[in-house]
Computed example of a mutant assay.
Amino acid sequence: MARFSDKVAIVTGSSNGIGRAAAVLLASEGAKVTITGRDSERLEETRQAVLKAGVAESHVNSVVADITSADGQDLLISSTLEKFGKIDILINNAGANIPDANGKTRTEGGIDTFLKMFQLNLQSVVEMTQKVRPHLAKTRGEIVNVSSIAAGPAAQPQGPYYSSAKAALDQYSRSAAIDLISEGIRINVVQPGFVETGFSTVARGLNAEESANFYSSMGAQPHCIPAGFCAKPEHIASVIAFLADRKASEYIVGQTITADGGSTLVLGFHAHFARKAPKN
């Protein structure tokens, strides 16, 4: 029997990257999956990727929604319950380093950018956790929050708002994990390092070729990634699946698993960016 047979999962931010890989993996191992994102075309690509993995169409629920809006959150939950009847797993993957509307960088970014960063990377997780809580209590379910090594403890001068939001997410996850474990709900966190999703390059305005070169270059520098390569989304998805699998990880509660190829143990990339970052 597949390890997620009879499980129902919601994966936010699943229109590409880590979210897409997680949705495909969970579904291919038996889960019924709700995928969601704001871009209908990219979300359809995810749906097709799930179906290509041999998953029955009836096991996929595709919802175009804005995870930062109450209506989007409610639609996501209600449609999952209507189609599948329960919720066992919530993967809070949606997140982004939102560019400043006025082109400001580092600590000069506008307060509106700061607020949007926290709304997406933290507030949406808090709201989804509150809304899904009664359903997960019924199933003794799992929550996996996707953070980032940007959360620290090393400084991130090139992206202080994003890194602060992720650091807050980590602490919220720890606190909520202890609060909800008495109801049988487990919460854990995955902290990815560099992952070939385009996430680290879109904010820098790089095209596809430049993006590929960036990830290749980072992976080739042992002071940046000791493992010698950037992660693929599938590498992070496998960690998410491990934490979502109660049989495999039942005694892990409120913990953060860092999946970064060793980057945070050498911290060389911080100096790399500090040296090359443009001044305002």
Rank of each mutant, 00 (worst) to 15 (best):
K52T: 05
D71F: 01
K138P: 02
T113K: 12
P160Y: 05
K86E: 04
Y161W: 07
A176W: 04
R133M: 13
I91L: 09
N121T: 01
N97F: 00
S58A: 14
V144L: 11
Y162H: 09
D112F: 06
A168C: 05
S78Q: 14
E142R: 15
L81P: 01
K86A: 08
P99N: 07
I185H: 13
P157Q: 11
P157L: 09
I143C: 11
P157D: 11
S163F: 01
Q73L: 08
K104S: 06
F118M: 07
A177P: 01
R106E: 13
L75E: 10
G85C: 06
E142F: 04
S62C: 13
L81E: 01
N92A: 08
S79A: 09
Q158C: 02
S147R: 08
K166N: 10
G184Q: 09
A150G: 11
T129V: 14
L75K: 15
H135V: 09
G159S: 14
T129M: 08
R174W: 03
A56K: 15
V189S: 13
R133Y: 06
A150H: 14
R186Y: 13
S147Y: 08
V126I: 15
F84L: 09
A137Y: 05
A177Q: 06
V64M: 05
P160G: 04
V126Y: 15
N93C: 03
K166T: 05
R47M: 01
A53N: 08
A151L: 07
R47H: 05
R140H: 14
I111K: 09
V125S: 14
R186G: 09
D66C: 03
V55Q: 13
V189Y: 06
A70V: 10
T80G: 10
S58T: 13
T105C: 01
T129H: 06
K104T: 01
V144Q: 07
I143N: 12
G152E: 11
T105H: 06
I187T: 12
T68E: 06
A70E: 15
L43P: 02
A49E: 05
I111G: 00
G103R: 07
I87K: 11
A167T: 01
H59G: 01
L122P: 02
D170H: 10
I98N: 04
S164C: 08
A101V: 09
G152Y: 06
E44K: 11
P153N: 12
G159P: 00
S182V: 10
L81A: 03
K104V: 00
P153C: 10
K131L: 12
G152Q: 08
A165K: 12
V146N: 14
A165E: 06
Q123D: 05
S58E: 15
L76T: 09
Q156T: 14
D100T: 03
E142L: 10
G152K: 02
E183H: 13
K116T: 01
S147G: 04
S124E: 05
D74C: 00
A154K: 08
S69M: 08
Q158P: 00
D88Q: 08
V50M: 12
S78H: 09
A168E: 04
I185Q: 12
A49F: 02
L43S: 07
S163I: 05
D74Q: 15
A53K: 14
A56G: 04
I77W: 03
R174F: 01
